[in-house]
């Protein structure tokens, strides 16, 4: 199978850079899998688990990502995530922390009557995505 270059970068460091067969991306409009020679596209991310398939060696194959976007361009996939962690390093406490953060943001958005309605909706979605991601990882 044709390999493609996969890069995962957070603002603070480059987490992964290797060749893979396919990448499963938690896109804002739903999960999608990108393989080599995918049509160029850019999608925003929702909080969720990013999986790579066919990575060489014992490299991590699943990452928890929040906020950011993925740039799929033919021979390469670059994921820019505001927060990205290998799933093996994520603990239930961390997820609870993220969820609490999202809940707080939601409460704030709801309390702020001047903010547009969709701000609160976006926060509510963020919260449910976080909870779903936790369910996914912690089983």
């Amino acid at each position: 199978m044709a390999k493609m270059q996969f890069d995962l970068v957070s603002p603070e460091r480059r987490l992964a850079s290797f060749e893979v067969d396919a990448v499963q991306i938690p896109g804002a409009d739903g999960d999608m899998t990108a393989m080599a020679d995918h049509a160029p596209m850019i999608t925003t991310l929702r909080p969720g688990v990013l999986r790579v398939e066919g990575a060489a060696g014992s490299a991590e194959t699943a990452y928890f990502v929040t906020g950011g976007f993925a740039d799929v361009a033919g021979p390469s996939v670059t994921v820019l995530a505001e927060r990205a962690l290998p799933v093996s390093e994520v603990t239930a406490e961390m997820m609870d922390g993220f969820i609490a953060e999202a809940r707080e943001a939601l409460d704030k958005a709801r309390a702020d009557t001047e903010a547009p309605q969709n701000a609160a909706d976006a926060m509510a979605k963020l919260l449910s995505d976080m909870e779903a991601a936790k369910g996914h990882m912690m089983g």
Binding site: G27, A28, D29, P40, M41, I42, T43, T44, F69, A73
Partner: peptide, 10 residues
């Protein structure tokens, strides 16, 4: 590029 959900949203 194709943008998802849309160029404006991204």
């Amino acid at each position: 590029y194709e943008y998802e959900p849309s160029e404006e949203a991204v």
